[in-house]
Design a protein around this nucleic acid. Sequence first.
DNA 1: GATGAATGAGGATTCATTCAT
DNA 2: AATGAATGAATCCTCATTCAT
Lengths: 205, 205, 205, 205
Amino acid sequence: MIEARPVRRQARGEKRISEILDAALALFAENGYEATSTNAIAARAGMSPGSLYQFFWNKEAIAEALSTRMIEGLRSAHGSAFDADAVASLPLVELVNRMIDPLVAFNVANPGGKALFGNTDMPARLAEATRPLQDAVIGRVAAVLAVRAPSLPTADRERAALVAVQIVKAMMGPVVAADGAERNALTREMKAAVAGYLARMDEID
Amino acid sequence: MIEARPVRRQARGEKRISEILDAALALFAENGYEATSTNAIAARAGMSPGSLYQFFWNKEAIAEALSTRMIEGLRSAHGSAFDADAVASLPLVELVNRMIDPLVAFNVANPGGKALFGNTDMPARLAEATRPLQDAVIGRVAAVLAVRAPSLPTADRERAALVAVQIVKAMMGPVVAADGAERNALTREMKAAVAGYLARMDEID
Amino acid sequence: MIEARPVRRQARGEKRISEILDAALALFAENGYEATSTNAIAARAGMSPGSLYQFFWNKEAIAEALSTRMIEGLRSAHGSAFDADAVASLPLVELVNRMIDPLVAFNVANPGGKALFGNTDMPARLAEATRPLQDAVIGRVAAVLAVRAPSLPTADRERAALVAVQIVKAMMGPVVAADGAERNALTREMKAAVAGYLARMDEID
Amino acid sequence: MIEARPVRRQARGEKRISEILDAALALFAENGYEATSTNAIAARAGMSPGSLYQFFWNKEAIAEALSTRMIEGLRSAHGSAFDADAVASLPLVELVNRMIDPLVAFNVANPGGKALFGNTDMPARLAEATRPLQDAVIGRVAAVLAVRAPSLPTADRERAALVAVQIVKAMMGPVVAADGAERNALTREMKAAVAGYLARMDEID
DNA sequence: GATGAATGAGGATTCATTCAT
DNA sequence: AATGAATGAATCCTCATTCAT
């Protein structure tokens, strides 16, 4: 009744958590959040339904953790792409490359992210848990714009960042779904769209 | 025994079908596809669950019909925006206006659309049922490009159309969610992004 | 999501509700509240689990309804036993007879009541829902005492009523469990205990 | 393979068993038998669930042991209250005092008892496991009556003992739940009820 | 054509119990 | 002796769908 359940975080725990998240990511990608059953996640992760709940309070918590892991993954995928001097000095096209290439690589390696973001079909509480990722990314782009287009009013800057992010998000589906030459072509167009749009707010080039 | 249920299309039938679709659209928009129960749709449509099934084989069929109705709605919303001479002679910015303004108006008036498109959280079969809308729209834009940039290879043209459509879709959520001045600002940016991108493939301006 | 579920109370509804309550009473009596599954109740009531929930929001609601039905049953079982002049004029022994005989008859006919009252093993909320019955009965006895022993302070009167009721409750289990001559003997002793105790507060005899 | 698990009774074992029973008693009192999980018992006893099962075969066994420990506790609580000459020579009121006062003290100190006795909400097998306590107490009272009212037929004597015990059990809940002056008042009434009832079978007074 | 009661499989979650370490 | 991760059956409840009226 009081139930502490400290959400295992030890040694072997990390591995199992990871297995659960992998399974969940795959299934969310295939069938969506709602249509994915916790029993299915457990089965795919090679454990019993009961074990799942030793690591997560409930289904939402899994999606939340997935979202968190995604943020961290993105951050490390970007590496030094957002370093102050890179941001300040690079030509726009090169900057866009540095931002988008790791994103594409990350999404190709982690299909299923799309099930988590920009998806209306999940409990309201979860949608909010998913927000940080969104906001983190937009914030990063806005920070870039703050350096590149310092005279732009904050509101405009945030809006522009949103637009850039939305374009990337929207194109990521087709990019991930395609492969080979077509994937490259789509990636090129995505970059063109983003760079073209941002060029308008950018004093330098 | 051989189950006829010929999907009613008669007199009063049309009206009831419409009521069901209205109810479904509203609920999908509020809670998403999976979280919307057929009983809730029936209730909101002012009929019994049994009656609902006299018009649709199952829940998916409702979403499919919604998708179809959406295509038609979009088509009529666009009116003469895609007329041959409009497409051939208008300045790009004006053409984009004629394409996007009705879309925004339509989506603001039908806020359930987002639950149906670009949402992974539905049975795979449904996601496919939803494709025609997508394709219809892309096809229309590709046709425009065929006129404006006739020298562009077909593959590039289709890809460009996809990009344009994705940008619009991606921005539609934020646009519909915002209101007043911010909605206008977002719409303006959406148009700028699309026009900016298409300008590259467009010989004229 | 909004879900009205007006808890069926119509024509045939009453019958089914009654069947559910009968089944629940029997099972609660056999296995207790917690150990009785809603599926088992439905099965014993000859319906599917889903149907059960057309009449009751959840398991607690069934116990609540059972408690309510019990109060009404007791009231009607007592008939005119608590009429003003009966209460005022009857010899104590006869009064006790009129109070206890219907209770014994009722409990023999409705075994299982014991699972609902004075049982700690149920959600706190339920325990409270069950209180009214308890209080109703004690209140009735206190009212009798108010007539028979008007000089007794209210607190003492309520306490005495509680004692009388507790004795009856405590003996009811053995009485119901026994049968034939032993049941009669136990009933006689229960009455003796109650009458003996009340005689002390009673001016007349 | 032949499953030994000899129910540890050694050195440190006794201490751990005691801790388990303490934890179980507290939790049964708080939440009832069914709602108390073995994991919660283990946690409260400061050990792992696995360890718990080294001392008890299952949940029922814990309740059984608790019942046994209760009998012993009661016995020692009563001390010399049932000594032959005390029983034979004391005025009834004083005898009742000597029997009931330790019981009240014991129950106030061990408020979990009520979850174990007179509670229908436990598996039938457990209810029986709980019987010995009941019977032990009744037997003791019957023995008293055998001395005080030797001419009473055995059956009547046992029945009278049952009544007395039931009264005490029934009042124990309210007594334990109350405190201060009200607890005293309730205890006084409990004694009055018991003494009043027994006086009828008692030749002396 | 319509109704709405009825169905029952399925989903999230818990918990008594086991077993590898 | 002890641990605590693992198990999986069982629970309450929902909902897409059917069918008698």
